[in-house]
Every structure is written in structure tokens, then in C-alpha cells.
Design a binder for these strands. Structure first.
Length: 371
RNA sequence: GGGUAGGUGCCCGAGUGGCUAAAGGGAGCAGACUGUAAAUCUGCCGUUUAACGACUACGGUGGUUCGAAUCCACCCCUGCCCA
């Protein structure tokens, strides 16, 4: 165990909702939960610099070991003294294992018991990643939190396929823990089981039997309806150790985050704020908006009234719309800042309301905002 | 004045007798995106109609033909070359 490096303090469980607020201590700072973690696949949050991340007060970001293994290679990052030195970033970093690529690179991979054969999407070069190899890669990269190498099943998915993927994930988890030796890195196991309640329950139990710093729920937001996602989280989360952080992988929209928090989730990540920013849309309390739309042509107001993000403090919708339409990359930067701030700020507000035992009020407020 | 290349929908541009409301871009309008193969992808885009359809359209006018953006005649305009 990594008790000298990691500690989770569960500060409060909202009396009305069961939502949780806590502190996760890492070798690179304390993370206030619930938290939204921006995704920086290639060791940068797309369109942003470390300066932006500091301004946003990001406490932890993600990177992807599969992508970094291909380029610049994990060994190069190790030569540079690990990912924190590599990208000159001193806050916490989490790397995904490559498990999600097992799911998303459908036509470029071949899953076997030993591991997965992948083709580099850019060059076609074939590579092999096993649980042991994933651990080695992630230990070379050197993030604070590393993820188990799992198999994420698609939606929809037959019971048989879901079961096979889940059981393999469990066997791989055993191998991950055996291969994981660095004490200053926390290895999070991942619950699978697709959208079958009994599989999820079984997986949650198996995963919980491993002594870990935190636990993740994977395999959601792969195209399923919201109510199914919520049901899965609802039956899975309570089966995970109470006094450990719970990470819902790949989620999501502002509403998804609140849906997760109220079901006892502490950590989230999603590409949505940054990808949608690059594609021209931004979050508001009244839902997602598209900056290129004509309605914003002469709109002198910020993206969101009262928003304290740097973008909203400095620029109008009309200006950002113009930048987007003439394909100035700065538009994507400005929208990324806003979107990430929006989700991080939502989690800050959630945290405060949980500490006050009134998360229900915030939750209901959001529901009515959207109507 | 002579020669030559051309004039196509908002713009660029393909098309040289029917399969053409007319390829493909761009612009415009709208939409999608959930552990990032994504600064990407999708739909609409002459007028009218809910739609079927109807109407108008390939510089202009006239002609050949069952049928013309495409062939013929004359005219107008533009680029380039020579005087």
C-alpha cells in the first residue's frame, strides 16, 4: 500500500443526498473532491498551456499512457525524469492505461488473454500491450494515479461478451497489482460488467477485494441512455469501499456530473469540455450553446452571465464567434477555458453544498435551470 | 483593328445533345460530440411547398432537334497575345 503517499479524507456525506466531499492527498498536492479532471491525452490539455491550467486552478489532469507510449514513448519520458518534469507540471497527474483504446480502436486491435495487439492509428505499426506492459509504461511515465488495464465493453453488448470482458478485466487486474511496484503511484482498479446489474455487482465486489487508494467505474458513457448509466452507477458505487475515492471514468456533461455526485462519485474526467470547445460549443446553465450560431453575431455579453472564468471576464460572444468563424485557434482556447472552468466550478459548488448538507438544493436548481 | 481563350447557381469550378436543379470545393444556415484515431464529422443550401410536385435557370437573342448548359447564327462582355 501507499499510505505514506496517499490519503483520502472523507469530510462529509450530505445528510440529504448521500453525496460526498473529501480530500485526496497525492505526492503532487491535495485534490478537493468531488472533482472534475481535464483530459490531456498527449501530455497537454489541448489548446491550453500550463499557465491556463494554473489560472483554472486545476488540481489534477489526465494523460494517456497508450498515446504517450507510441509518442514520444514512455522511456523518453522516463529519461526526462517522469511526466511532471517532462511537461513541467507540478500538480497531480493520472494516466489511463490504454484500456479505453481497447474499446475505441475496435478495428485496430486484437484482444487475447495475454494482452492486446494494437495498431498505431497513425503509422499502422503493430504493438502489444499486456497488463504487465501497461504497468511498466505507466510506471515509466510516472503519474500519481495509474489505472488498471481493463477491457471496456461496448453498448449494446451481449451478456456473454460482457461477462467475458469483465472476467478478463478481473484476471488482468490481478496481474496489474502484481506488476505494480512503485509506492508513490496509486493503482486504481476498474469495475466493468457493461449494463448487466448482476455483473456490475459481481465486478464491484471483486474489485473492492483489492486494497487500493481509490476505485473506478469504467465502461459507462459509451452510447447508452442516461437512465441506464445512472442505474449502473447507482448499484455499483455503494458496493465500493466507503472511505476511498470513487472515480467515474469518462463522464461527462454537467448533468452527468451531478447525477454521479448524488450517487456517491468523487472523481470525473471527460474530453467533452475541450473537444466541444474545439468544435465550437460551450456550456451554460441553460444547456449547451453553439458559438457559430447567428444569434451571437452582435452579442456583447460573455458566454455565461456572471461566470468568473478568464474568458468570460475578458471577451464577448460576438468576438469569440468571429474568432471561431475565421478559424483562429484562440477561439478553441477561450472556449476550452470556459468549459473546463464551468465543470470545475460546478464541482466546487457541489462540494460546498455537500459540506453544508444541502446538495439536494443545488441538484434541483440545475434540473429547473434546464427546463 | 487582328488573333486566341473564355463567359455555369452567393463565389470558385466540373460538365460538351437526354441519366442535369446541374459534380466538387468554399461561403452561409443548422446539428452531433462523454477514460481524445476528433481544431472532427453530419444535414440543408435556385424559388415555392409540410411533402409529392410546380416554376425559373448555365452572357443575350433567334434557330436546329422529340429533347439544348451542351449543336448553329448573330450580338454583348472579359482575360491574354500581336499591331
Amino acid at each position: 500500500m501507499n499510505k505514506e503517499f496517499f490519503k483520502f479524507e472523507l469530510l462529509n456525506i450530505c445528510k440529504k443526498t448521500g453525496a460526498r466531499a473529501g480530500l485526496l492527498h497525492t505526492p503532487h498536492g491535495v485534490i478537493e473532491t468531488p472533482v472534475f479532471m481535464p483530459v490531456g491525452t498527449n501530455s497537454t490539455v489541448k489548446m491550453l498551456t500550463n499557465h491556463h491550467l494554473k489560472e483554472l486552478n486545476a488540481q489534477i489532469i489526465l494523460a494517456n499512457s497508450f498515446h504517450l507510449f507510441l509518442r514520444p514513448t514512455d522511456t523518453l519520458i522516463k529519461e526526462f525524469g517522469g511526466i511532471h518534469k517532462w511537461m513541467n507540471y507540478d500538480k497531480a497527474i493520472l494516466t489511463d492505461s490504454g484500456g479505453f483504446q481497447v474499446f475505441s480502436l475496435t478495428n485496430l486491435r486484437d484482444i487475447k488473454e495475454d494482452g492486446v495487439k494494437f495498431k498505431d492509428p497513425k503509422t499502422g505499426t503493430e504493438h502489444f500491450i499486456s497488463p504487465e506492459r501497461s504497468m511498466e509504461i505507466q510506471q515509466n511515465i510516472g503519474a500519481d494515479i495509474i489505472m488498471a488495464f481493463d477491457e471496456c465493453a461496448p453498448y449494446p453488448c451481449s451478456y456473454e461478451d460482457a461477462k467475458v470482458a469483465m472476467e478478463r478485466t478481473h484476471r488482468w487486474l490481478e496481474r496489474c497489482f502484481k506488476a505494480h511496484t512503485k509506492k508513490d503511484q496509486a493503482l486504481f482498479p476498474i469495475v466493468q460488467g457493461a449494463f448487466y446489474d448482476d455483473l456490475r455487482i459481481e465486478s464491484a465486489k471483486v474489485i473492492s477485494s483489492f486494497d487500493a487508494v481509490g476505485y473506478a467505474i469504467g465502461g459507462v458513457s459509451v452510447g447508452e441512455p442516461t437512465d441506464i448509466k445512472n442505474r449502473i452507477v447507482e448499484i455499483t458505487a455503494p458496493l465500493l469501499p466507503v472511505n476511498k475515492p470513487r472515480y467515474l471514468m469518462g463522464v461527462g456533461t454537467p448533468e452527468d456530473l451531478l447525477d454521479g455526485v448524488i450517487r456517491g462519485i468523487d472523481m470525473f474526467d471527460c474530453v467533452m469540455p475541450t473537444r466541444n470547445a474545439r468544435h465550437g460549443s460551450f456550456f451554460t446553465k441553460k444547456g449547451r450553446k453553439i458559438i457559430k450560431n447567428k444569434e451571437f453575431e452582435k452579442d456583447a455579453e460573455p458566454l455565461e452571465e456572471g461566470c468568473q472564468c478568464w474568458t468570460c471576464q475578458n471577451h464577448s460572444k460576438a468576438y469569440i464567434r468571429h474568432l471561431y468563424r475565421v478559424q483562429e485557434p484562440t477561439a478553441a482556447t477561450l472556449l476550452s477555458i470556459h468549459n473546463i472552468y464551468f465543470l470545475m466550478n460546478l464541482m466546487r459548488q457541489a462540494r460546498q453544498s455537500i459540506l453544508n448538507n444541502e446538495f439536494d438544493t443545488l441538484y434541483q436548481q440545475w434540473q429547473s435551470n434546464l427546463k
